[in-house]
Simulated assay, not measured.
Amino acid sequence: MAPRTRTSTPTRSDVVLSQIRSDVLNGRLAPGSKLGFVDLGGRYAVSTGVLREVLPRLVEQGLATSEAQLGFRVIDVSVDRLSHLTDARVAIETLVTRRAVEQGDVSWEAEVVARHHALTRVTDSGSGDIQEEWLAAHELFHIAVLRGCSNDYLVDTASRLRSISEVYRCWSRPEHDRTHRDIAQEHHDIMDAAIGRDADRAVELTETHIRRTTELLVAARSDEELAAGRPG
């Protein structure tokens, strides 16, 4: 689930979790790869004790798995898994979005607008690759919309599914996403519908946004596999 805002100084565990999370979401730790204590300890200059605290939190966020005798691994990815994840996200996130639009207060509106503004500032940077700063701003914008819902269980479930979906951004070329859509306009329209209290429109836009991302990721993945001479 997505981390909530902290007011205290981050602990060593918080810092390491953020580093591992970033490496998973950006593909530096590949889907399905083993998260061994020795390798991670050297990579992040951290003790096994800290890793024993951090890795279960990564599992809670849906970015890793843990099995007896096999240890921890980055979650695996496939077209079937992405299809199931997309259906789950649409079911949960549209429900939470509707409740957020209906229940959110003025402070929620202000947060949605602020997070959207922050996202546009990063999006307009002109970089050819998806940046870590953009990934963070993107997540914070969508979570800000969801936070209008008063049911924390639903919000946390939706946020966790969003975290898992981000792993797929490292699964195929990000250029494919930006070339074939106006994602900045999609975000602007979602913000407008949300703060305009148009729940039906916000739900429609949210589902389209989620499913379009999946369609483009699958298409890009198929193109890469064909180019490499591998079956899709």
Rank of each mutant, 00 (worst) to 15 (best):
P3S: 15
R4V: 13
R6C: 06
D14K: 06
V15N: 10
V16D: 04
L17P: 03
R21T: 15
D23V: 07
D23Q: 13
V24G: 00
G27T: 04
R28N: 12
P31A: 14
G32P: 01
G32V: 04
S33W: 04
K34N: 07
V38M: 14
D39K: 05
R43P: 06
Y44D: 01
V50H: 02
V50K: 00
L51A: 07
V54P: 10
L55G: 01
L58I: 13
L63M: 01
T65C: 02
E67L: 02
E67Y: 00
A68I: 08
A68W: 10
Q69A: 14
Q69W: 13
F72Q: 08
R73F: 11
V74L: 04
I75L: 04
V77N: 09
S78L: 12
S78N: 05
D80L: 13
R81C: 00
R81F: 02
L82R: 09
H84L: 11
L85G: 00
L85I: 00
T86W: 02
A88N: 12
A88D: 13
V90I: 15
A91T: 15
L95D: 13
Q103C: 05
Q103P: 04
G104S: 03
D105T: 08
S107M: 11
E111R: 10
E111C: 12
H116E: 07
H116S: 12
H116A: 07
H117W: 08
L119M: 09
L119S: 06
T120G: 06
R121G: 05
V122I: 12
V122K: 08
T123R: 06
Q131V: 08
Q131E: 09
E132F: 04
A136Y: 02
A136D: 10
A137Y: 11
A137K: 00
I143S: 09
A144V: 05
L146S: 12
L146C: 13
L146Q: 15
R147I: 05
G148I: 00
N151S: 10
A158I: 09
S159I: 03
R160C: 06
L161N: 06
R162C: 12
S163M: 14
S163V: 07
E166N: 00
V167L: 04
V167A: 09
C170Q: 05
S172N: 10
S172D: 08
R173A: 10
E175W: 08
E175G: 08
H176N: 13
R181V: 11
R181A: 15
Q185S: 15
Q185A: 14
E186R: 07
E186D: 15
D189T: 07
I190L: 14
I190T: 07
A193Y: 11
A193N: 08
A193L: 00
R197H: 14
R197W: 03
A199N: 03
A199H: 10
D200C: 05
A202R: 02
E204P: 02
T206Y: 08
E207R: 15
T214A: 15
E215Y: 11
L216K: 01
L216E: 15
L217K: 10
A219T: 03
A219W: 03
E224F: 11
L226D: 09
A228G: 12
G229D: 08
G229V: 08
P231D: 07
